[in-house]
Design a protein around this nucleic acid. Structure first.
Lengths: 128, 128
DNA sequence: TATTGTTATACTCTATAACTATA
DNA sequence: TATAGTTATAGAGTATAACAATA
């Protein structure tokens, strides 16, 4: 029951996210944020941060690179690729972050400030 | 933030579910429950109930049938297949439901009764 | 004409194993 | 030997389009 209701709520929030941040899933935004905060991060360390296999990253980064959002540059350790946001990537990330802020406000508007705090606290207790 | 925390909580609960109910995902259990409650339900109406395309059902039902959990029987409207749980399906469903009850108790144990009610209410407010 | 189950096909997201180039 | 990126492959889980049988 709780798991089910949790999933419904998560899906509702996800739908709102997808509708407001077009063309960038939560996971992709997370990658862009991580790269933005750690310019030159290698693919493997990004994969660790996202808790994904490094082989999974390859295709995702291929897509982000093909869309002109990120750049791979060979590191001084020539086995590695450092990752950077392009100008376009920074622009899109900034736009996505504004959309996410509006999205959060829309979700938060369904709750009072106290309820929101409560919900976060209760979710924290469950997320062992 | 809220969406993210929601996802973490949902994943934590899902992990506990998967660990306690081996070999049957929440979605599959839902199908067995629906068939159990509606013996002879057709594939298309089951698909509607699960909010999936009827073509998606085919493969899932093939698997459940191959595992001997369900039976397809041609309906009097000979375009349709009626679905029934087999004896093995009923046994496994009963076992899964007991495991789910223990799972729910384990999750609920992280919250007081009042907190649990609160959480359900707050999730309801979000799940528009 | 419309519906049911099915198939062929495809897309997303994920992983494991093995390869290559470097270290 | 060990690591980084890559490729081939696979497996859930999902969908759309088209087809045969039936209504």
């Amino acid at each position: 029951m709780l798991g089910y209701r949790l999933r419904l709520a998560q899906q509702a929030v996800f739908r709102d996210f997808a509708a407001s941040v077009q063309g960038l899933s939560p996971g992709r935004v997370g990658l862009l944020i991580t790269i933005d905060a750690n310019p030159g991060i290698t693919q493997s360390r990004l994969a660790e941060a996202a808790e994904r296999d490094r082989s999974t990253m390859v295709g995702v980064l291929d897509l982000l690179e093909a869309r002109g959002l990120i750049e791979r540059r060979r590191g001084e350790d020539r086995r590695t690729n450092g990752l950077w946001l392009t100008r376009g990537g920074r622009t899109l990330l900034a736009r996505a972050l504004r959309a996410i802020a509006r999205h959060e406000q829309r979700i938060a508007a369904r709750l009072s400030a106290a309820e929101r705090r409560q919900l976060l606290a209760l979710l924290g207790k469950i997320s062992l």
